[in-house]
């Protein structure tokens, strides 16, 4: 049972990383970021369910991760807004000013 859920978490993690590397849209990249955080949450809750039923520290960590991921998504969306006002686009590959 444990290894199934852990492999689900690892699978979600890989999907998130893959999406971050390949996505061309900023909002989609932020969604992939959330996916990775959800993989972490799945891992934590599984471990907490199996080893730590007394104190449930993993679930507390998961709550903190949810809150922080929401803050990160809010900041990301604010940045997307600022970018959209300046360039009328949120595509990542149109940003290539900074390079050597």
């Amino acid at each position: 049972m444990l290894e199934h859920i852990l492999s689900l978490g690892a699978y979600l993690f890989c999907i998130g990383i893959f999406g971050l590397i390949t996505s061309r849209n900023m909002v989609r990249a932020l969604m992939c970021l959330e996916l990775i955080f959800n993989a972490v949450n799945i891992n934590l809750i599984t471990f907490s369910n199996s080893f730590d039923t007394q104190q449930a520290k993993g679930e507390i960590f998961a709550i903190f991760i949810i809150a922080i991921a929401a803050a990160e998504a809010a900041i990301g969306l604010a940045i997307v807004l600022a970018i959209y006002r300046n360039k009328n686009s949120t595509r990542i590959d149109q940003f290539n000013l900074l390079k050597w």
Binding site: G9, G16, I36, V40, F47, S48, G58
Partner: peptide, 15 residues
């Protein structure tokens, strides 16, 4: 990305 990778490592440590 880096903080999520770090958190994934932390979840393994916890388990």
């Amino acid at each position: 990305t880096s903080s999520s990778i770090l958190a994934y490592g932390f979840s393994w440590l916890y388990g």
